Simulated scan of single mutants.
Amino acid sequence: MNMMNIMVSCLCLSVVVPFLMSVQYTEAQRVFVVGEGTGWTTPQDSSTYQSWASNNTFAVGDILSFNFQTTRHNVVEVSEESYTSCTSTNPIGTVYNTGPVNVTLNRTGQHYYICSIGQHCTSGQKLAINVLASALPPSTAAPPPPPPPPMSLASTFSPSSIPFLFICSFIFVFLDIMHGP
């Protein structure tokens, strides 16, 4: 393989590999604004947040963005019993009193959130969601891709090799320029 072929190969790899890696991670994290335009507030309709949640599929790594006015609302993750009875005596994790706040979904299963200020929860300011391991529900999840063949690009390159590929391509271009035609 001559120097020109090596240079072209390195240049192509330095462009293609980062692109392919970025495509792989595009759905890793999504941000959901709870209630969308309504924000996290005492709703007019007590089913507002459950209707919103039913139109979305949540997965580990996703972020719930609760937009609320500090001192007027808060966000408390609670158990199912506390959700049903609108009590916050045993919160799960941090009680968020300063808005807006982003909560990263870090485990699968049911998650319950309420506002513990006044009668906000009993007025419908509460959210129950189911968090899946992946963004697709299990019934529609695509089968996993077949394993790559031995010595494929996927098995030989890692994110840490990207800077090396860029440097390699620039060195070859520089050497080619220095040697001339």
Rank of each mutant, 00 (worst) to 15 (best):
A128D: 08
F174N: 09
I162S: 00
I162K: 07
S155H: 03
C168A: 14
H179T: 15
T140K: 11
P150S: 07
P148V: 09
S152V: 10
P144F: 07
A133D: 14
T140H: 06
P147D: 05
I129E: 02
D176I: 00
F174H: 04
P145K: 12
L165T: 05
F166L: 09
I171W: 05
A154G: 03
P163Y: 03
I167C: 08
P144V: 01
F174M: 02
V173E: 08
G180R: 09
S158F: 11
P181T: 10
I171M: 11
F172H: 11
S139P: 07
I129F: 02
I129A: 02
M151V: 11
S152D: 03
A141F: 03
I162V: 11
S169F: 02
P159M: 02
P137M: 00
V173Q: 03
I171C: 13
L132P: 02
I177P: 00
M178C: 10
P181A: 11
M151A: 14
S169G: 06
A133S: 14
P150M: 03
L175C: 10
P138T: 08
I171K: 05
A142I: 00
F172P: 09
P143M: 03
F170R: 07
F170T: 11
M151H: 14
A128S: 15
P137V: 08
V131F: 01
D176L: 09
S152E: 06
P144S: 13
P137Y: 02
P150A: 04
P146V: 00
A141C: 04
S161W: 06
L132I: 04
P138G: 01
F172E: 12
I177T: 03
L175E: 07
I129S: 00
F166N: 07
P145R: 11
P149T: 09
I129P: 01
A133P: 06
A154D: 13
S160M: 13
F166T: 12
S158D: 09
